[in-house]
């Protein structure tokens, strides 16, 4: 679409300039065209197709694309499992982002100090990002196994935690078909996810701290501010744009999370660790409920788009 508009608008430009650029401009279009076509079909076209499937009756192995209206969506929002997924995703997202931001900021400030061995510490915090969520899931599944792992230490403190096998809901109250609140089992998954992704926010904040000119701190020191005050009153507020980026990137990871939970816990008893990504996978590829699966996918997409679209638009504006 864009390239079509582009060539049309070229005709309105003065003829002299157009002639000079013609060949190069054609080449530029040629460079972009394959990608534009691929993205148009496989991103936008396929999303539209998924949307179409989500409005159909295709809930068996045999494709049936007859129009079903919002039937699949209405079914989902009344479904115990999907309501549990929404609760879990909300709780997971808030806890996950909260910890990633707090620990990330703390570690970045610590690594910003003049300390020996900084690069070793930095690498320790960064390396889990190079790992697959599947590896993380496999390892943490064992570490947080109720009869072993960290519980061997916690038992000495008199704690006997059930981690991801716990079906309790904290601060729960009845909401729809489900108990709304904080599923204890989700905390186990949050720990694994925070372990893996903290490095991301540390890296972002460190880059932000590096971008703050020394004069800013110097000036504050001259005015008699303590180091603590400098961070609290000057540096951390300057890092706010970074926090926005980290929140949005983490939110989109969290809303579409699948592999970590699939490898670590699966849906869990009573769906205490289920998320839309896992439900979509199981209902579509294990149960052949294609229209239902497509509806879950579209809901996931919309929830991500709520964060991402304004972010993309604002970062484009910030550029120009």
């Amino acid at each position: 679409m864009e390239t079509v508009q582009q060539t049309q608008s070229e005709f309105t430009l003065p003829v002299k300039r157009k002639r000079k650029l013609t060949k190069d401009h054609l080449l530029a279009i040629g460079f972009l065209l394959p990608s534009v076509i691929l993205i148009a079909i496989f991103v936008y076209g396929f999303i539209a197709w998924t949307g179409y499937v989500s409005l159909s009756n295709w809930n068996s192995l045999v494709p049936d694309l007859s129009f079903a209206g919002l039937k699949n969506y209405i079914y989902l929002f009344n479904d115990f499992r999907f309501q549990s997924d929404l609760r879990n995703t909300l709780v997971f997202t808030i806890l996950f982002i909260g910890f990633v931001i707090i620990i990330g900021q703390l570690l970045a400030v610590l690594l910003d100090q003049k300390l020996r061995g900084k690069s070793i510490f930095r690498n320790i915090f960064f390396f889990p990002m190079a790992l697959s969520f599947v590896v993380t899931g496999v390892v943490w599944q064992w570490l947080l196994n109720p009869s072993t792992g960290v519980n061997l230490f916690l038992q000495k403190l008199g704690l006997e935690l059930k981690w991801y096998t716990d079906t309790n809901i904290l601060a729960g109250f009845k909401w729809g078909h489900i108990e709304f609140g904080i599923p204890v089992a989700i905390i186990a998954v949050v720990i694994a996810a925070v372990w893996q992704m903290t490095g991301f926010s540390v890296a972002m904040y460190l880059a932000g701290l590096g971008g703050i000119p020394d004069e800013v701190r110097e000036a504050a020191r001259m005015d008699g501010a303590t180091e603590f005050q400098i961070y609290r009153k000057i540096i951390l507020p300057l890092l706010q744009p970074i926090t926005v980026s980290v929140v949005i990137i983490m939110a989109h990871i969290s809303l579409k999370i699948f592999d970590l939970i699939y490898a670590m816990t699966g849906p869990g008893a009573n769906f205490v660790t289920d998320v839309p990504g896992v439900y979509m996978f199981e209902t579509t590829f294990r149960g052949n409920y294609y229209a239902s699966g497509a509806a879950i996918a579209i809901i996931m997409l919309l929830s991500v788009a709520v964060f991402i679209v304004p972010y993309l638009i604002s970062s484009r504006r910030g550029e120009s």
């Binding site: 496989f42 991103v43 076209g45 396929f46 999303i47 197709w49 998924t50 499937v53 989109h252 809303l255 579409k256 699948f258 839309p276 990504g277 979509m280 996978f281 579509t284 294609y290 699966g293 497509a294 879950i296 996918a297 579209i298 996931m300 997409l301 991500v304 991402i308 993309l312």
Partner: peptide, 10 residues
Amino acid sequence: FIPYQSILIP
């Protein structure tokens, strides 16, 4: 940024 679930069936 899209969840790839949203293009997986097609």
